[in-house]
Simulated scan of single mutants.
Amino acid sequence: MALLILFNLLFPDGMVIWARAFFSGRTPTSEQVSAANIHAYVGITVLLLASIRLCLRFIQGVPPEPREEPAFIRAVARISHWAFYALFFIMPLSGIAAYYFGSKGAAFAHGGPIKTLMWVLIVAHIAGVLVHQFYWKTDLLKRMTSGVN
């Protein structure tokens, strides 16, 4: 999921070009539609994978929080994880509303504040992992990359 999300965040050009044409009243070319479709299909894949991931989270649970973390940081981690889950759904759904239903407001939200919030969470997530790895010296990075507790 991370790679798909980063792909769409780093390479939105096809969709941006399509959106400029569409929302200015011009008919996008077939090449523009094809490029936009790649972005859309990656986003839909993220939505499907997020649904599976959320189901697995409810069925299997989550690993225990590291005891080395202060209680406040554990609460921040829980909030940020649920914010990620919310964005895993909100981002693709707003993109679907923009691309398939022509919602200009959804397009603005998708490419503006929602995208910015996703980047903020990604940076905070990376910072949190680095603190775990080098300050608290937990095995969090290993758990994230291999799934081993």
Score class of each variant (00 low, 15 high):
25 G>M: 05
15 M>E: 11
25 G>P: 05
65 E>G: 13
10 L>F: 11
52 I>C: 10
96 I>A: 08
115 K>R: 14
88 F>S: 11
2 A>Q: 12
27 T>F: 05
118 M>P: 01
54 L>M: 13
121 L>Y: 06
69 E>L: 15
131 V>S: 11
46 V>E: 04
107 A>E: 14
4 L>I: 06
29 T>N: 05
129 V>T: 13
91 M>I: 11
26 R>N: 15
52 I>V: 14
22 F>I: 01
129 V>M: 11
105 G>T: 15
4 L>K: 00
113 P>A: 14
92 P>C: 04
1 M>E: 05
27 T>Y: 03
116 T>M: 10
48 L>M: 13
38 I>V: 15
79 I>C: 13
74 R>W: 09
93 L>A: 08
33 V>F: 06
14 G>C: 00
9 L>A: 02
51 S>Y: 04
129 V>H: 06
113 P>F: 14
102 G>A: 01
106 A>C: 02
138 T>C: 06
40 A>Q: 10
127 A>D: 08
56 L>D: 13
93 L>T: 09
120 V>Y: 04
6 L>F: 08
47 L>I: 10
42 V>W: 01
145 T>N: 00
88 F>H: 08
12 P>C: 01
115 K>L: 12
120 V>W: 07
29 T>W: 07
5 I>Y: 02
34 S>L: 12
80 S>Y: 08
142 K>E: 14
110 H>W: 07
39 H>V: 02
143 R>V: 03
143 R>P: 02
90 I>T: 11
145 T>D: 01
89 F>P: 03
145 T>R: 08
115 K>V: 09
43 G>Y: 03
70 P>L: 11
